[in-house]
Structure formats: structure tokens, C-alpha cells
Design a protein around this nucleic acid. Structure first.
Lengths: 224, 224
DNA sequence: TTCATTATTCATCGAATGAATAATAAAGTT
DNA sequence: AACTTTATTATTCATTCGATGAATAATGAA
């Protein structure tokens, strides 16, 4: 590297009204990207700080430890998804005749929207899949805290529509559903080569509908 | 720490017929455990070596780099699963009337057996879930190498049973299936609290049958 | 004007990590 | 007996990591 000294930011609080809208958000965005790409252990705070254009010590100032930063990243968008699920469920239940397909679609759509919403959303979807594959207790707690409330509401609503199926079994089938959509969201682009080397021709938006159809059929299957 | 010097093994080849059946296998076993628990980046070669009761340099001697060790771990049991899938498919096709349920069960069972086979098998199942959640190209290549051949055979066989469904769609639905069982295998023990705090009463073996039923119904759903 | 608070950088520390090399001893080969 | 190969430990290296205490500057209230 050359001795070229890039004009370093001076320490101290920046003048009000200067460019950076919020260093905090920049940190969260870049942490999201890094954690998604490399996993918790694989991502480095230095790298995150550099990408966000701030000093590494600032991460600690705002978020505390690495784990705390990770949690903040996960809760940010996880909370959005969970909230939107609640809204869509309320809306679906207000309709005249909610169907299983309607509820499944309502449950999946927030994730789908998040993924399509831009690079940050897509990164979060990948991050989420990683968290679901981690066996550590802390990861499990995070998932529970963020996702279980809305999930339970959907299980209740579906149980109402499926009186012939014990609630336990509905809950189990919802777990199958979660696995299927997590995987699909991440592997969408890689499905291509399963069909004999030809590029798949199912367009992305149809893919969501195909998943809804598949999962609804599974939920409706007779018990025992 | 005290100066207590535990009687250190001297360097050099151990006398034939001494205890250790195979240091190589011990390394693979412990690597499997560590990678499953902490992920690729989170696991340390030192830790693996210590657990295996060998020197760290021996990992390098046998396997090369950390990545190479990881690949060896993955291929070992992944190959077993893939091989068993081929066997069970041949057996199912030799029957008079194979059904969708039969084929789905044949596809899932090797994973299930692996998970039940002991702590090493269970660790591999967790490891496998992690690999499927990693976006890096290398992880994708590994999965493809190990699992795609058997997967393609199952897609063909299922397509034969489902003439009304385009092959593309069968392949897509198989991807949904993979997601569901990966997640189920890992989350089995954690499903408990979804059903209102009561401990789930579906015994593990029934769980597999429930998954088969759920997925078969999805595969059989009419197209479009 | 003073002064506490907030936001930020600086500089560095100790621990841990993956890789690499050198030494050593048993087993195998000639 | 002399050598080569195989398996193993010991040690060192260079790097990276997360964490942290101290410094510094802008802001805003007293």
C-alpha cells in the first residue's frame, strides 16, 4: 500500500447537518450484509466498520458486543416481518371466507416481500436461514422471541379451518412449512440445474404461488 | 498452572498394535462435531485436534487445509446417505406398484436413519443443515456433488408417477421437500413449544410418517 | 460562559487462529 | 544394515480478532 494518507475524519462529534444521515443505520446495514455472507463467526467487526465507513470502536459504542450487534440486526427486520404477518392475518380473518390457501399466502408473503425489497432484504433472508440452522441456544431464543408469537396465531387460525386435524399436527405441519419456505427463498436461484440443465422457466412470482399450493395441499392432507 | 508435566507422547510413529485404532477417524469424528456445533468459521483446528487427542499438525498431514478437512467430513456421511438413497430407490422401483408415498419415504429414510444412528450421525445432520444455508459457492458445489445425482433420479421416478405435472414443477416441489425435511430433522426437539406449551405427544417415528404424508400430498397437488 | 453529554476516532492489548516447518521414531524396503 | 516412507509431536510465524481505555470535538442546556 502507498503512503497516501486519505484525509482522515477528525475525532469528535461531527458537525450537525453533515452528510451521513445515520452512522448507526450504516452499521446495521453492513453488519447485515457481512453476517449473511459469512455467518456470525465468519464476519469480522473490522470489516463491518470499514464498509460502514466508521471506526470499529463505534460498533461497541452503539451496540455493545458482537453478539449484541447480531441480535440488533436480526430483530430489526425480523420484527418487521412478524408485524406484517399480524396485519395480514387480521386482514384475512376479516374476509368473508378465509381459506387455508389464503392464510398460507398471508404467512409467506412478508418474507417474499422482504426478499424482493432490495439487497438489504435479500441479505436478511439469507441471514435468517443461517440462524434457523444454528443449534446454539441463543439462536433458538432469538427465533422464538421474534417469530413464535405470529406463528402461534397462524396455528390457531388454521386449526379453526381444519377441525378434523388435531392442533398438535397442525403445529407440526407448520414447522414443515417453515422449513420449505426458508429453503426455497434461499435456493430459488439455484433450482435451475435440477431440471436437466435447462434453465427453469417458472418465473419468480409464480414460484411463490407454487409453494402456497404445495403447502396448502400438505396442510389439508387427512390426519393419520 | 502447575509444572506437572503429563507424560507426553514422544514424536514419531507409534508402535504397531498400540491402542489408537485410527487417528484419522478420530479427527473426522471430532471435526464433524465441532463444525456442526460452531460452523466452519467458528470451529478451530486446535480444538478439533485436542478433542481427537492428536497434535494439530496431524490434521494438516492427513487432510490439508481446514476447508479440505471440512469437505472430507461432509463427503464421508453425505456419500453414505446418497448411496443408500440409490439402493432404496432401486428397491422401490422393483416393487409391483411404487407410489408417491413410497418414493418420498425412500428419499427421506436415509437421513432419518443417519440421525438416529448415534451422536455422530446427529451431528452430521446439523452440519448438513448449515451447509444448505450457506451462500458461498463452495458450499453449493459440495451439495451438488454429493446430493444432486440421487436427487435427479428421484425426480425422474416421481415424474413417471405424476404424468400430469411438468417435470420442472416436480423438480421445484422436490426442492420444497428438501427444505421441509432438513428443517424438521433439526427442529424436531424444538417443536415442543409451538403447541401451547404442552409437550408434543407425536413420537419421533410417527413424525417421519407425518412428514411423508404432508409432502406426498404436496407433490400430488394438481398443477396450476 | 461553563459544563456535562453525545458521537466519534485513536491506539493498542492479549488471545486465538491457520499455516508452516523441523524434529523424531517406528515400519517397510532393499 | 542402510535407506526410505509413514505417522506423529513440537515449535514457530504471521495474522487477525474482539475488546477496551483514552482522547477529542460538536452540541445544547444551565
Amino acid at each position: 500500500m502507498s503512503q497516501k494518507q486519505e484525509p482522515r475524519r477528525k475525532p469528535g462529534r461531527p458537525k450537525a447537518g453533515t452528510d451521513q444521515p445515520d452512522a448507526r443505520d450504516a452499521i446495521l446495514d453492513q453488519a447485515e450484509f457481512c453476517f449473511a455472507a459469512a455467518g456470525f463467526a465468519g464476519a469480522s467487526l473490522r470489516d463491518i466498520a470499514t464498509r460502514a465507513g466508521v471506526n470499529q470502536a463505534l460498533l461497541r459504542y452503539y451496540f455493545g458486543s458482537k453478539q449484541d450487534l447480531f441480535d440488533a440486526v436480526f430483530r430489526r427486520r425480523g420484527g418487521m416481518i412478524s408485524g406484517r404477518r399480524h396485519v395480514l392475518l387480521d386482514r384475512a380473518l376479516a374476509e368473508a371466507e378465509p381459506t387455508v390457501e389464503t392464510l398460507v399466502r398471508a404467512y409467506l408473503r412478508p418474507q417474499w416481500e422482504m426478499k424482493q425489497s432490495g439487497p438489504g432484504g435479500a441479505a436478511f433472508i439469507a441471514l435468517q436461514a443461517r440462524v434457523h440452522a444454528e443449534p446454539e441456544a441463543h439462536a433458538l431464543d432469538l427465533r422464538r422471541e421474534v417469530y413464535d408469537p405470529s406463528l402461534k396465531r397462524y396455528i390457531d387460525a388454521l386449526s379453526g379451518l381444519l377441525p378434523a386435524i388435531p392442533r398438535d399436527l397442525v403445529a407440526t405441519r407448520m414447522a414443515f412449512l417453515v422449513g420449505a419456505y426458508l429453503f426455497m427463498l434461499n435456493d430459488l436461484g439455484r433450482l435451475a440445474d435440477l431440471s436437466e440443465g435447462q434453465i427453469r422457466e417458472i418465473p419468480p412470482d409464480d414460484m411463490l404461488e407454487q409453494l402456497v399450493r404445495f403447502l396448502s395441499a400438505g396442510l389439508l392432507a387427512p390426519a393419520i
